[in-house]
Design a protein around this nucleic acid. Structure first.
Lengths: 204, 204
DNA sequence: AACTCTAGAGAGTGTCACTATCCAATGTCG
DNA sequence: CGACATTGGATAGTGACACTCTCTAGAGTT
């Protein structure tokens, strides 16, 4: 198919498809002449993935490129792909060396072991720092309960990774890591709304 | 204190403080003359809150203004403040009427009741739509497990709301709703990293 | 008197994700 | 065959956003 059909089938403007091609988010089509290229079903699928990462996933073009690079590298291990996805996710704008102590203590109590320079660890420390700066320092009890719930989810995420092929597993990890975040946040808000309705009945 | 000291104490440039004043994120200081105004401790605290919402909280200036409006309205009910915070949060770029069915079915199974036009519900539907578009449609089992974990957290969030004064409660709700999201996401990523290390041992 | 600081307003900056325009070279259709 | 549309590729422009800079007149400080 030509670029116009690729654009039509995905609802993405042609100019934008060209932009993604230039930015390396979408592989080049097969050139059939100096002014013609052919695109296939895999381009449709890839383009949809790109749009999902950029839109709901909330990634920047640069971060999406990094994520997709992991998807495209055939010899990536699953664990490495997870790391790549985590590095690509917007953590908290790490300014200066945040205080990692409270973050580490949560991990210790849970028995979790992660890389020394894990971006998620830095992100957690930054988020805690922000809470303290806003005058709402979280207690260890609160963090532990959050960690327990998060642990259940993370455990399940990893357990579900398919073992068929590495490429399939890597794609699964990347998509689920990024695109299930908004799902989790939305569910938390819905749970809050329901709990709030029950606790403050008069306010509806 | 003067604006320069307010800026120095919070580490925010004077020009930026002025910008926040203009945008209505920070209340005006008490004018002591045509070219002088006085700021107090509450301004320091508010400015830190603004920075937390804009930075780690990930809110835009417009959304932060909406959130702070709820904090500033003295007769806000706690439930309404939660709603205001939810509306201000970036959901998923709601394009067109997404399919709410799967989202609603999760709520039904959990017994949660929320407003018909709850922004969180729309956000959930949008996030599910994105997953389907990316070719990774989530199963109901997966959603239920996510919902169970999210329910635990949302329940706790609401249970912890202080009952002293409405103003205090509203501030608590807003801060925790917004600033605990990055904490939850970071903890999930850490749990994934730990689980991944255990499941794919060779890859570290 | 010299100097620094202020409030307030307007304009400028850098980044980002597109979006529009051009060009020459093909395709396609009648 | 020829009119017309489309393409790849490159360059430039756009609009939103969060600052950031500059300017002015006035006021406090030394």
């Amino acid at each position: 198919m030509q670029i116009s059909e690729l654009a039509r089938r995905t609802g993405v403007p042609v100019a934008t498809v060209k932009y993604y091609l230039r930015e390396g988010l979408l592989p080049q089509g097969e050139l059939t002449g100096a002014t013609r290229a052919r695109y296939g079903e895999d381009h449709v699928e890839r383009l949809r993935l790109v749009r999902a990462l950029l839109g709901p996933g909330g990634l920047s073009v640069a971060r999406a490129r990094a994520v997709l690079a992991a998807v495209d590298t055939p010899d990536t291990s699953v664990h490495a792909a997870l790391g790549a996805a985590h590095r690509a996710l917007p953590g908290v704008g790490a300014e200066g060396p945040a205080d990692l102590e409270q973050a580490r203590s949560v991990l210790r109590r849970r028995g979790w072991r992660v890389a020394e320079d894990s971006p998620a660890l830095v992100a957690l420390a930054g988020a805690l720092e922000a809470l303290r700066a806003a005058g709402a320092a979280p207690t260890d009890e609160l963090l532990d309960r959050y960690a327990e719930a998060a642990g259940r989810i993370g455990e399940q995420d990893v357990a579900e990774v398919p073992t068929g092929s590495v490429a399939e597993a890597v794609r699964f990890v990347v998509v689920n890591t990024v695109l299930l975040e908004p799902v989790l946040l939305a569910l938390r808000r819905l749970a809050q709304e329901d709990a709030s309705r029950r606790r403050f009945p008069g306010d509806c």
